[in-house]
Design a protein around this nucleic acid. Sequence first.
DNA 1: CAGTAATATAACCAGACTAGAATATAAAGT
DNA 2: ACTTTATATTCTAGTCTGGTTATATTACTG
Lengths: 104, 104
Amino acid sequence: MLAEPRRREILDLLRSRERPVGDLVERLRLTQPAVSKHLKVLREAGLVEVRHDAQRRWYRLRPEPLAEVDAWLAPYRRFWNERLDALERHLDAMPDEPDEGEEP
Amino acid sequence: MLAEPRRREILDLLRSRERPVGDLVERLRLTQPAVSKHLKVLREAGLVEVRHDAQRRWYRLRPEPLAEVDAWLAPYRRFWNERLDALERHLDAMPDEPDEGEEP
DNA sequence: CAGTAATATAACCAGACTAGAATATAAAGT
DNA sequence: ACTTTATATTCTAGTCTGGTTATATTACTG
């Protein structure tokens, strides 16, 4: 889902402002159907929403689902902060100790 | 990459402690080759690292790459916080207004 | 050294995914 | 009503991916 680079590009573009499909087509240098299909996926995942204005469809970002990703990430953030802190303390305490590491 | 549910499960398991492959195989109820392949992907993405202990391979989490994901997510976090704040203020200010969007 | 345990790699397959071309739909403009 | 503009959908072909079975590798054990 967020692995798809085009999809991430779309999200990045929508972060600054809402945009019609044609605008995204230009910037991504993809065909219009391809973009529409990505938008469909993003819509169904709840990551974007549409506003109809005559024939134009304005797409914009929706915050909630990314908050979920963020929530999933939260425990990892704790984890890596601990580890990095520990590393810092380690380096700070013993600045010329050889590394015990196992590199294949 | 992180879209893969099995891969996320593996990461979740490794968050608590380092584990040998067989342990992951049991818990995921997947065949051993499948797990080994996921681990390869995770290794190449730098998300996990291995320690050799006789025939056993102990896998453990590496913090750095998730920090990158977090960094990618950061601007979105700003975005949705703003939006949710705005929504709150909106609901607070006009408790019985019908819903409609705001333009840039 | 033969045998076994733990894991990795190879070969293969079925389903999912993406992109393109062609076509359909929807709303305006004339 | 016909045409144009903007977007969606369908069909199809190629690629990617995750899983399985079978085999190889690596390290301990008798």
